[in-house]
Nucleic acid binder design. Structure first.
Lengths: 132, 132
DNA sequence: TATTGTTATACTCTATAACTATA
DNA sequence: TATAGTTATAGAGTATAACAATA
């Protein structure tokens, strides 16, 4: 069963990723939020929820903690007073750029047994599973 | 990053697996316990914990529920009175055999976009990641 | 001393209901 | 009426400490 092998391999790469984020104190959801804010502007909490498959009530504490940490700020949305625009700070950019670097290194390390050709082939087949 | 693709593909197959177990009312841990008891004899709670990476305190409720359901029984261990030997019942065998059949079908369905050759290649590469 | 099974407990992740302000 | 953010809360899954019985 492929699902079994997929789960075990995924546990390896996920574990490696989380280990690499321990010192930066970033959980997967924190990493993903900052990564999205790094490359997108004018993003709201609801948009993060949809992109990351996180329910709105569970995103509240995530954003509060990141704001308290000084890696993102909230700004009022002139177009829609219900929502707030989230923006990554200089400190947040520095943090996520370092995190991305470490994440790439941990991914390489966890899949080091594969050749470049195998990696490309693997990525293509995995996409066929989750994206049709 | 391969880890990202692995995680998304794994979420698809895991979701498909869990959906296929809804009617049989089996969680992944229940499936794994019964599957191990189907092909191994003289198994204890501690051995299940080690094989499935579940902590002993968390295995207690799992086994209690499966015993209450009548799919496994406990028997005193003559060699070591601290532990109990777990045994799958006829009802349990019937249940896990049906579950295995459905799990295989769900796995096939979730990875239907891949050819037989691709499946073999994918399994081989995934093993390289988690088993070296 | 070490191990097995167990209880109690806590922490994280995930999920739903319901509220307010705004659209 | 529908949506955004929020609070409160509940349910899984996972974690540690500590205990009695046995090795």
């Amino acid at each position: 069963m492929l699902g079994y092998h997929l789960r075990r391999a995924s546990l390896v790469t996920t574990g490696s990723f989380m280990d690499s984020m321990v010192e930066l104190e970033l959980r997967p959801v924190d990493f993903s939020v900052l990564n999205l804010l790094l490359t997108n502007t004018g993003v709201t909490s609801r948009q993060l929820c949809r992109a990351l498959n996180v329910l709105p009530p569970n995103m509240v504490a995530v954003i509060n903690a990141l704001e308290k940490r000084g890696v993102l700020t909230r700004h009022q949305n002139a177009r829609d007073k219900r929502s707030e625009i989230l923006q990554i700070t200089a400190s947040g950019k520095k943090l996520i750029l370092q995190a991305l670097q470490q994440a790439i290194a941990s991914d390489q390390a966890a899949t080091a047994k594969l050749t470049a050709r195998e990696r490309a082939s693997l990525a293509r087949m995995l996409k066929k599973i989750y994206a049709g």
